[in-house]
Simulated assay, not measured.
Amino acid sequence: MLLFGQEGPGLTEEARRHASLVCSIAQFGSTRSINAGAAAAIAMHAWIARHAQI
């Protein structure tokens, strides 16, 4: 299961306690958060690139 937190605050502490792995997306410049839909697309693409049997 993939969980995505709110822009800015991220995941709740309870969600973080139950997670087996917490990742973040590095950003540069003045942007402090990324849209959850964009973050989901990046995370799913990275997962497929790593695990797909092509």
Results as ranks from 00 to 15, higher is better:
residue 38 A to H: 06
residue 8 G to Q: 02
residue 51 H to P: 01
residue 49 A to N: 08
residue 5 G to A: 01
residue 52 A to T: 05
residue 36 A to W: 06
residue 53 Q to N: 12
residue 40 A to Q: 10
residue 4 F to H: 08
residue 49 A to L: 13
residue 18 H to K: 10
residue 27 Q to E: 10
residue 12 T to H: 00
residue 24 S to K: 03
residue 34 I to F: 03
residue 16 R to P: 09
residue 39 A to E: 03
residue 43 A to D: 06
residue 43 A to W: 00
residue 35 N to A: 05
residue 29 G to Y: 07
residue 23 C to G: 12
residue 27 Q to P: 00
residue 38 A to F: 01
residue 43 A to L: 05
residue 54 I to M: 15
residue 14 E to S: 13
residue 11 L to A: 00
residue 2 L to T: 09
residue 46 A to K: 04
residue 23 C to D: 09
residue 16 R to L: 11
residue 43 A to Y: 00
residue 16 R to A: 14
residue 46 A to E: 10
residue 24 S to D: 12
residue 49 A to G: 10
residue 49 A to T: 03
residue 7 E to L: 03
residue 47 W to Q: 09
residue 6 Q to W: 01
residue 19 A to S: 09
residue 1 M to C: 14
residue 7 E to P: 07
residue 20 S to T: 14
residue 50 R to S: 14
residue 53 Q to M: 12
residue 45 H to D: 13
residue 33 S to P: 07
residue 30 S to V: 13
residue 34 I to N: 02
residue 8 G to A: 02
residue 39 A to F: 04
residue 16 R to Y: 05
residue 51 H to K: 11
residue 52 A to Q: 12
residue 42 I to V: 07
residue 39 A to P: 04
residue 51 H to T: 14
residue 6 Q to Y: 07
residue 8 G to F: 01
residue 25 I to E: 11
residue 19 A to R: 02
residue 10 G to W: 02
residue 30 S to C: 13
residue 33 S to D: 02
residue 20 S to V: 15
residue 47 W to M: 13
